[in-house]
Amino acid sequence: MATGGRRGAAAAPLLVAVAALLLGAAGHLYPGEVCPGMDIRNNLTRLHELENCSVIEGHLQILLMFKTRPEDFRDLSFPKLIMITDYLLLFRVYGLESLKDLFPNLTVIRGSRLFFNYALVIFEMVHLKELGLYNLMNITRGSVRIEKNNELCYLATIDWSRILDSVEDNYIVLNKDDNEECGDICPGTAKGKTNCPATVINGQFVERCWTHSHCQKVCPTICKSHGCTAEGLCCHSECLGNCSQPDDPTKCVACRNFYLDGRCVETCPPPYYHFQDWRCVNFSFCQDLHHKCKNSRRQGCHQYVIHNNKCIPECPSGYTMNSSNLLCTPCLGPCPKVCHLLEGEKTIDSVTSAQELRGCTVINGSLIINIRGGNNLAAELEANLGLIEEISGYLKIRRSYALVSLSFFRKLRLIRGETLEIGNYSFYALDNQNLRQLWDWSKHNLTITQGKLFFHYNPKLCLSEIHKMEEVSGTKGRQERNDIALKTNGDQASCENELLKFSYIRTSFDKI
């Protein structure tokens, strides 16, 4: 039985969820670079991206490699990797027998973001014989899940209580170790020597080791999670996991709180800001991140802002960003909400898709409305799209047979046209069989910064309504002859009103 693990408890099935942008060198404390989270699957090609990484700022997932063999891993080693800020997950990587050479110096898994409450997941690794993470000293947050690894031993010899604050939620089941077939031998045991430290858990006094050649490092209890030197002297209180010299914040392997210019500090002093819960960055760093993602459509890219001495992905609820200094300031009234469309555009074809934009005031991208039916549609669209004030790209209304009016965009005031449909149009209306009105132009103002209007096959939309939009939106004169079809717009509506004058002759039985 794995020490510190839980057996036999019912657990939810383990679901495996399925960018080499360097964020800056980590400095003297770390020998390499800070790398983003990685999802490495199918083959070993991307694994080489770990070569210079000291910190993975995010998670590391290595999974679904069915053609790899043990010899493929023999020359692979990433000794610079010290810390993973989120979680480490391995799933069905064939041929991998140990992690001792792959990650010989991995010391800390912070667990800032977890995989279903777990910071370390080893699942269905069919050839893994031992973990071998002999320098792993601290899992700051989260638990361990090690399950269905039929060859995995050296679990009962690990004292997880020396690595985690609590072992109650560890789930370590259905491994070879369960069948008591392992016969784990710690260093020196074969020669009758006791080389590794022994600890007591559940009444068992057991030597602690990761492999037959690597003991588990056990520091004096007084050192807590700070770690200790090879001689057993406690590291500085700002260290986490390990250090090369005692009581020196510049000799830590990793930091308990924050890293700044080669030393570990309790908090980031001005003019620095907390970033990702582990390091200090200056304003320029946060500003660069903001600008890199301002026009990016890459998933996970955030326009970072500053709030409460932190550089964070977005302002919290009730705050909006001051564009001059990136500071989050309290909103006066309802907060603006910028919604970034991942692929640059979004099609609204149902109430469900409209709900995804609920509360958005600025759309960074283009909207395509293609709704053919739905219950209580006008009210639903207004509830979900009615706060949109600005669209950076274009607005396209296409084959939306259920629409009679666009009044559900009740606050839309600006279409920038930074991206144009077919390279020309910022407003595009095609084949809307029941569209009769755009907006009530006596109450609604709309500016279209650039781009043209396109109207074709809107049989109940009168040309007068379209011409009014040209005047109000500032697009009059931009359109070419064929942009607004004269014969297919309003051709099934009563669009022309003329005053009919009647004269009559009164007659009676005795007068003409």
Rank of each mutant, 00 (worst) to 15 (best):
I201D: 11
D247L: 10
L50E: 00
S317N: 07
M65P: 15
S143M: 14
Q299N: 05
E130Y: 12
E238A: 10
M65I: 06
Y30L: 09
C311S: 01
Y304N: 02
E168I: 03
Y273I: 02
Y134N: 15
E124P: 00
K176L: 06
Q216V: 06
P104F: 01
C280S: 00
T107I: 15
S237N: 13
S112I: 15
G203Q: 10
L102S: 01
L90Y: 02
P104C: 01
T157G: 06
G203E: 14
D247F: 09
R69P: 11
K251Y: 11
H28E: 13
H307K: 11
C293V: 05
C215N: 11
D177N: 14
G32S: 03
T68L: 11
I40V: 13
V265K: 02
N195E: 07
L133I: 10
D75P: 04
P270M: 13
S166Y: 14
C280D: 00
E49R: 15
G37D: 11
D261N: 03
I109W: 00
N257I: 01
G227N: 02
V34H: 05
S323P: 14
L136Q: 02
L174R: 09
C223M: 01
D165M: 05
E124I: 01
S317M: 14
D75Q: 11
P336E: 10
R208K: 03
R110F: 05
I146Q: 03
P334Q: 12
H226S: 10
N150A: 07
R263V: 03
D165N: 06
R298H: 07
E180K: 10
I201C: 13
G227R: 04
H236S: 11
D86Y: 02
R92W: 02
M38R: 05
S161A: 14
T157C: 13
R256V: 07
D261V: 09
S166R: 11
H290F: 06
L136D: 00
R263P: 01
T211H: 07
T194C: 12
L114S: 06
P269S: 03
H214V: 11
L102H: 01
L326N: 08
T199V: 11
V200C: 02
T157H: 09
T199E: 05
P79T: 08
S77D: 02
G300R: 07
L44I: 11
T329R: 12
C255T: 00
W210K: 05
C234E: 02
V126I: 04
V93P: 00
L120H: 00
G188S: 08
T107S: 11
K80C: 10
N170K: 07
P220L: 10
Y304V: 11
I306K: 02
I84K: 00
N195Q: 06
G37A: 15
E49I: 15
H28I: 02
L136V: 03
Q276W: 03
N170R: 12
L76F: 12
Q61P: 01
C286H: 01
A119R: 00
T199K: 07
L174A: 09
R41C: 02
V126T: 02
S112E: 15
V218N: 09
C335M: 07
H290I: 07
R69H: 15
F78W: 05
N325K: 05
P334S: 11
W160D: 01
H307N: 15
S143T: 09
G262D: 14
G333E: 13
K217A: 05
N135I: 00
C280W: 00
C219N: 14
L50S: 01
M38L: 04
